[in-house]
C-alpha cells in the first residue's frame, strides 16, 4: 500500500482515531507513523476534529491512590538516574545487553536456520544536481525475515526544509512503490506484504516535503542500489 496517498492516509487515520481500527491493523498503523508523515499529519488532523467531542463527558475524579502510584514510579526513575547510580545503571544495562546477546546467540546455535541474516544494500549517490545531498552513500539493511528495512546515511543529508527524501522499491516490471520518506536519510520502514516482490533496486528521490503528492516519484533520483533477496 502506498501510504503517501492522501486519501488512503486520511481513511486509515479516521478509522484509527475513531477507534474502529483494531488489533493487528492498529499496531501496524502505529508502527508506520514514524516514517510516514502523510499518515501522521492525517492522524493529527483527525485528533483535532474528534477529541473535542469528549468535552461533553462529565469528569470523574480518580482516587488519591492513582497520583501516589504515579508519583512513586517517577521517584524510582529519578533515584536510579541520580549520581553514582547512573554509572551503576550503565553497567547494569551493559550486562543486561550481554545476557540478551548471549540468549540471542544460544537461540541462533540451537536453531541455526530460524534467523536469516539481514541483507545490506548500499545506495550510491548518483551525483544528480541537487543541493544538500552528500557524495557518501546511504546504507539500507533489510531484516532477515523481510519485515523491516532500516536506512542510515554515511554522512548527514541536509535538504531544504520544503523537500523530503523518499525511498522506492523499483520492480523489474511496473511502477516504483513508495516505502516512505527518510528524514535526513534515516528511516525505519515496516515492509508490508510483498512490497519488495519482483524488485531488484532501491532508489531515493527528492520530493516535496512529506513525500510525492502523486504516489509516483516526481523528483531526481539521488541514491540508487541493486539488491537480491
Amino acid at each position: 500500500m502506498d501510504y503517501s496517498r492522501k486519501d488512503l492516509a486520511d481513511a486509515l487515520a479516521a478509522e484509527y482515531v475513531t477507534g474502529t481500527m483494531r488489533g493487528g491493523a492498529r499496531r501496524r498503523f502505529e508502527s508506520l507513523l514514524p516514517s510516514h508523515p502523510a499518515l501522521r499529519e492525517a492522524m493529527l488532523a483527525w485528533n483535532e476534529r474528534l477529541m473535542p467531542l469528549t468535552a461533553a463527558l462529565a469528569p470523574v475524579e480518580p482516587s488519591g491512590d492513582v497520583w501516589r502510584r504515579i508519583s512513586d514510579r517517577l521517584d524510582r526513575r529519578k533515584s536510579v538516574a541520580a549520581g553514582a547510580w547512573e554509572r551503576l545503571s550503565f553497567w547494569r544495562g551493559l550486562t543486561g545487553f550481554a545476557s540478551i546477546a548471549a540468549i540471542g546467540l544460544a537461540a541462533l546455535l540451537a536453531n541455526p536456520r530460524a534467523v536469516a541474516p539481514p541483507v545490506v544494500v548500499v545506495l550510491a549517490a548518483t551525483g544528480a544536481a541537487a543541493s544538500g545531498v552528500a557524495g557518501a552513500p546511504i546504507v539500507a539493511s533489510i531484516s532477515g525475515d523481510g519485515t523491516t528495512l532500516v536506512t542510515r546515511p554515511i554522512t548527514p543529508v541536509a535538504l531544504r526544509p520544503d523537500r523530503s527524501l523518499e525511498l522506492w522499491a523499483v520492480p523489474t516490471q511496473g511502477a516504483p512503490r513508495s516505502l516512505g520518506v527518510l528524514p535526513g536519510g534515516s528511516g525505519v520502514v515496516a515492509l508490508k506484504g510483498k512490497v519488495l516482490a519482483g524488485a531488484d533496486t532501491l532508489a531515493v528521490t527528492i520530493e516535496p516535503a512529506g513525500g510525492s503528492p502523486t504516489g509516483a516519484p516526481t523528483g531526481p533520483i539521488v541514491y540508487v542500489g541493486k539488491f537480491s533477496l
Binding site: A58, P59, V60, P62, V66
Partner: peptide, 28 residues
C-alpha cells in the same frame, strides 16, 4: 486533566480498577 481523562477511559473500559491502572500508565 485527570478527571477528564478518567471519564474518557471509563467510557471505553468500565472496570474502575482497570481504568485507574490505565490512567496511571497514561500519566507516566
Amino acid at each position: 486533566t485527570s478527571s477528564h481523562l478518567l471519564a474518557v477511559v471509563l467510557r471505553i473500559n468500565r472496570d474502575r480498577a482497570q481504568a485507574e491502572d490505565i490512567l496511571q500508565e497514561v500519566y507516566v
